[in-house]
Structure formats: structure tokens, C-alpha cells
Amino acid sequence: MTMSTAAAPARPRRAMDSLTQRYLVLVGLIVIASVGFGIANENFYSLANIGILLRSIAVLFLVSMGMTFIMLTGGIDLSVGSNVAFAGGVGVIALTATDSAALGFVAAILAGMAIGAINGVFIGRLRLSAFMVTLATFALARGLALVIYDADSINVSNAAFLWLGGQSWGSLPVVIPFVALVFVALSVLLYRAPFGRDVYAAGSNFNTAFVLGRMPQRTLVWVYVLSGALAGLSAIITVGRVSSGQPWTGLYLEFDAITAVILGGTSLFGGRGRLLGTILGVLLYGIIINGLVLTGTNPYLQSLIKGLILLGVVLLDTLVQRRKAQ
């Protein structure tokens, strides 16, 4: 019985239904939040503001998609925010040393993957707790970023390097179609490639996957490397956005990403969730943050609201499911 679920570990129908329901809840909340903020502030709907909003959450989109893969395997990655700073540092140093944007890109992504590989080996091969390992690399990567930058920022003027994060076509930032492309690519990887099935299998039941020869330990390594690569991409976008490399960039990004992924309905215990949910989660989160900024809300009140919304969405979801089950 367990064998058959693991052999075809594609999302069982019931889970799909509850996920679809969650997405409807999210879409509803996004509409309510937009209308509410739109009434409170006429600027909310301006094209410029929408561009700002999307650009400001571009990095969160990428990092959260990586986090979704990890959480599908039942893991967690606390190191992504620090990794964005570290990968950016390596990229910027490579750029200034060689004056080649291409080498800078490659260096940033490789650096991100390197931290991801450390996570992956410790978690996948040594079977250590993801929480603990990434907590260690959270400190390690931030520390390395500080060392690389010598705790100072480095200005970047190379137009090619800045293009992705800084350029806009009118009100549309270049980075938005780029994020959409990444989303499509990752969707293919998750839903159409064998790797995606391995991810769901590793999250549903590691031991069964192991017995079935799906090599979940290898899958885990690659999932963390993927998250690292996305952190590297995010680093490039961040550098472009602020036209400089910053050692403190990405601070607490992991908390935002985890919150967004949870909002998007992905289970913490692995095996259940979709990328679309994460996209909706990031959108809802971004709209709320943007709206709170527009209305000049007290930062402490913002924290409280953030907490209540997170709890409220999950609670709503649970209650709806319970009623349905009855």
C-alpha cells in the first residue's frame, strides 16, 4: 500500500482539493487586501506602485520558490538570506577583479550553490537536522559576507551586471518577466521531470523512497543546491537593484520566505504543496507589506498584523477543511 503511494507519489486527489481551496482563499484575501488598501490610498493602484510592488518582491519570489522545493522534502533553509549576501559578495568581487559581467554572474551563482551544497551534504548525506545545519550556515554565510566585504559596501557601475535588477521597460521592471521565466522552468522541473517526483517522494516518506532506490539523500543535496543557486540569482538582482554590493543584504529574508511559503499552503512536513501557492503567498505578503508602508503603519503594529494574518490564514484554511470533512 505504501509502496504504491511512493511509486506514484504524485499529489493524491484529496490533497489537491484542499490545496485548490487554499488558493481560492488566498486569491480572495489578495482581492480584499487590494481593495482595502485601494480605498485607503488612491496611489495603491497606480501603475508605478504596482511596478514598485512587484520589483520589491522579485527576490522574495525566487527565494520562496527554492524554499518550496526544500519544504516539499520536509526540510527548511534558514541560510538563504545570508547566502544572498555572501553570493553577492563573491559575484561583486569577481566582477571588480575581472571586469566581466558574465564571470560575475557565474561566480555569484556558484557561490550560492556552494553554501547550498554544504547544507545539502550535511542534511542529505549525514542526515543531520535541516534546522540546525542551516542555522549554522545562516551564521557562516553572513560572516563570510562580512569578511569578503570587510563589512563595507562596494559600488558597482557595470551596466550589464546591473541590468537584471535595475532596468525597467516603462513601469515594468525587467526582473518581472525574468521571475516568470524562472517560475515556468521550475514548474517544468517539479511537475514534468523525474527530479520533481523524487522531491515529492523524499518528502512523503524518506525511508520508503530510500528502499525504492529513489536515492532521496541525493535528491536532498540537489534541492539545497537549487535553493543556493536561486539565492545566487537573487544576489545578482539585489546588487542591480541597489547598484552596490551590501554585506547586510537579505537580513531576515528567510523568515519572509518561510511565511510566504506557508501562506501558500505548502506543508511543513513535506510532500504537499505547489509552486503556484507560493506565488500567491508571496503576492499576498507583498501587498500587505506594501499597503502598510503606504498607510504609514507603526512598525510594531505591522509585526502584530503580520502575526495575526499568518495565523488567520492557516486557521481559516483548517476550519474550512474541517467543515468539509464533516
Binding site: 520589491s56 537593484r241 541597489v242 547586510w248
Partner: peptide, 21 residues
């Protein structure tokens, strides 16, 4: 009065939003 809570990205976002205002 807006607080970026120590994050450069958040500060840039707040600034962009404010300029738009």
C-alpha cells in the same frame, strides 16, 4: 515616519513608494 527595520531592501522599497506618493 517609516522604519526600514535595518533592511536596505525594505528601505529602498519604502523610498520608492514614498516618492510615488
Amino acid at each position: 515616519w517609516l522604519s526600514a527595520e535595518g533592511s536596505l531592501e525594505k528601505m529602498i522599497q519604502q523610498t520608492e513608494v514614498t516618492i510615488n506618493e
